[in-house]
Design a protein around this nucleic acid. Structure first.
Lengths: 202, 202
DNA sequence: CCTTTGTTTAACCAAATGGTTAAATCAAGT
DNA sequence: ACTTGATTTAACCATTTGGTTAAACAAAGG
């Protein structure tokens, strides 16, 4: 009955590559089939249609992008150390799949309603909520300056993700080749922490 | 001979709306024609083909996004004040056309080669280069901490632009309605300046 | 009035694209 | 060997889509 059970896997891997590169509108089913080295009909046999296939790819990409934040946030350690580790870890993780952010962000902007549904059904990011509470309490206690935890979060995530999203622009404007760009990113693993911590000093 | 000379303008306006909303791959020529309230053939009559039309829209969007930086950078004033004004002004400007950044960034990532060509032919952003020199000198003089001007620039632009690019995500995760989001942005006009300045304190 | 020249439209076209199907293939189970 | 049920393929289909064209229209100029 069952043949090689990895046709499904082949398809998903190929779909990831094509969708993330071209986006939902720009991706072609034929290209995904070619990338996987299989017949186009197999895509529909295993995953019904383009949207269903896209949904799987997108959900995984989305989880990957968000999940990387959580696992740091929960660990118990001094706040400053935690923020520094969060930044370093997050940048390192993104650098492994640098095209994920622009893909996820663009598709989200293409269908903002999807976001509302997806978020509403999800566990509401308890890690992030806990971290925000920690920030508020540290502010009241005087350990750090009192700041809006949402703004803090936006600042951290902005400085971690944006360089990857704007990579071709940055390389163009500042005339940086790929090696130089990677060095900038490496430097930011500490630098972004510095920026945030200096801002939070009471 | 000539009828209403604003058909060309109608087309451009419609093209902007559709391209910025859907991207190059997602935009449909028929939708642009409908938006402009004219016959589809007119698009080709005035602008040859989809790519030519897109190029016009993209170039204007790109210039708009970059140009907004320059006009602040050149004015002579104390560095701290200049940075604060730059941030406030840039955020205000982006807020007027909040969909431009994700559009420009996504299309750039879709065709990174185009970036190289476009940048190479442009005046190389002399405003930005001057500003970077000013940062280096202020660092040597001890007015501010010695930092990489490229990193400084990335930090500023990241915190200014990213919130707009990630808007649906931010609203979802932090359960912010549109009014609340606008308030966050308003707050950032000063806050981002604070973050940068505190980091630059010697 | 009629010619001329730029503008606009409806109809049309070929290629691309997402999706389907009927037949072929393959791997057990008997 | 034969049956059975899942898997795979080539050919096909309907729709969409970017682009074209021939004819209609409109506004001067003579």
């Amino acid at each position: 009955m069952a043949k090689e059970r990895n046709t499904e896997e082949l398809i998903i891997e190929a779909a990831k590559k094509i969708f993330i590169k071209r986006g939902l509108a720009g991706a072609r089913m034929q290209d995904i089939a070619d990338e996987a080295g299989i017949n186009k009909a197999m895509l529909h046999y295993y995953y019904r249609n383009k949207e269903k296939l896209f949904e799987i790819v997108f959900n995984e990409a989305f989880s990957k992008m968000m999940g990387r934040l959580g696992n740091i946030l929960t660990k118990p350690m001094p706040l400053e150390e935690k923020i520094r580790m969060l930044v370093e870890n997050y940048i390192t993780n993104i650098a492994e799949t640098p095209y994920l952010p622009i893909f996820v962000l663009n598709e989200i902007n293409q269908q903002p309603e999807m976001m509302v549904k997806k978020i509403s059904s999800q566990p509401a990011f308890p890690d992030i909520m806990l971290f925000m509470k920690e920030i508020i309490e540290a502010g009241k206690k005087g350990t750090i300056k009192e700041v809006s935890p949402v703004q803090l979060f936006m600042n951290i995530v902005s400085m971690c993700i944006f360089p990857f999203v704007a990579r071709p622009l940055i390389q163009g404007v500042f005339q940086q080749d790929s090696v130089q760009f990677d060095m900038l990113i490496e430097e930011r693993k500490k630098l972004v922490g510095d920026v945030i911590i200096s801002w939070l000093k009471p």
